[in-house]
Amino acid sequence: MTDINAQFAQAQQDVKQLPERPGNLTLLRLYALFKQASEGDARGDKPGFTDIVGKYKYDAWAALKGTAQEAAKQQYVELVESLKSGAAT
Rank of each mutant, 00 (worst) to 15 (best):
T67R: 14
S38K: 07
S82L: 06
K57R: 15
G54T: 12
A71C: 06
L83F: 04
T26L: 12
E20C: 00
N24H: 12
Y76P: 01
F34V: 03
L27K: 15
K46T: 15
K65W: 00
I52T: 14
A68L: 04
W61R: 02
G48Q: 04
Q69C: 05
N5H: 07
G48I: 03
G54S: 09
E70D: 15
E81F: 00
L28W: 10
K35E: 11
A71D: 12
R29N: 11
Q13I: 02
V80T: 01
G48Y: 04
E78D: 15
G23M: 03
R29Y: 04
Q74F: 04
L25N: 14
K84E: 10
R21E: 11
Q74P: 05
S38H: 09
L25M: 13
A71G: 10
D41L: 11
Q74K: 13
K16R: 11
G54C: 08
L18W: 03
A60P: 04
V15A: 09
A71W: 01
S82Q: 12
L30C: 10
D45S: 15
Q10F: 11
A37N: 01
Y58C: 12
G40M: 08
A87P: 01
T26V: 15
E39R: 07
G54I: 08
Q75G: 02
E78G: 08
L25A: 10
F49S: 15
Q75W: 07
Q36T: 07
L83Y: 02
T26M: 13
V77C: 04
P19M: 01
E81W: 00
L18G: 02
